[in-house]
């Protein structure tokens, strides 16, 4: 006798379809999130002409600037800002440390703000570095490396020169020298 294959009940097929759809939704969601994560990881460094990414820096314990223990880039709107990424373990950072402090002393009365961000540094060593070079402009650890992630730095030292409109005018990879400093400062102060 011939066997007849019975079709499964319609409700069972519907249930199967719903499960399949749910699974594909989850797969697509996970793929989407993975893609977002990858895009975030592979974001390119903000270059000259682009708006500087915003950040808030919480100064090292015991340090303050203008009576505050933190400052946000947004608070400095209307002022040219020099953002320097450094670390106490970085040999090249030592080459520019004195120059940055001298430039800060020279330009601070003209409304320019220098800020230093310690990248992947250990707090006692970073503080010792600041004492060693008598750095007086505001400095902070890069908590969670969120600021260096946004600026996509590839190492230290790196310095971003931002004009009073919040636009990056120059990105310096490696240490800054005196002649470079003067010409870039003139540029960001006239923008």
């Amino acid at each position: 006798m011939a066997e007849h294959i019975q079709n499964p009940p319609a409700t069972s097929a519907k249930k199967l379809n719903v499960t399949a759809i749910a699974i594909w939704v989850v797969v697509l969601a996970v793929l989407g999130l993975s893609g977002y994560g990858l895009m975030k990881t592979n974001a390119s460094r903000p270059e000259a002409g682009e708006t500087a990414p915003g950040f808030t820096m919480n100064f090292f314990n015991g340090y303050e600037w203008e009576g505050q223990d933190a400052v946000a880039l947004a608070d400095l709107q209307g002022k040219p800002v020099v953002v320097n990424f450094w670390a106490s373990w970085c040999v090249e950072c030592r080459l520019e440390a004195d120059l940055l402090e001298q430039a800060w002393q020279q330009y601070k009365d003209q409304g320019v703000v220098f800020v230093g961000i310690a990248y992947s540094d250990v707090e006692p060593n970073a503080k010792e570095y600041l004492r060693e070079f008598s750095v007086t402009y505001p400095n902070a650890p890069d908590l969670g490396t969120s600021i260096s992630d946004d600026y996509e730095i590839t190492g230290v030292p790196e310095t971003f020169f931002i004009d009073r409109n919040g636009v990056i005018q120059h990105v310096q990879i490696g240490p800054v020298n005196a002649s470079m400093m003067n010409s870039i400062m003139a540029k960001i102060m006239t923008q």
Partner: peptide, 16 residues
């Protein structure tokens, strides 16, 4: 807290 989750070999099961 200091350097971000990515410095851990086993990142916590949160966010991304």
């Amino acid at each position: 807290d200091q350097y971000g989750d990515r410095v851990l070999a086993t990142p916590p099961a949160e966010g991304l």
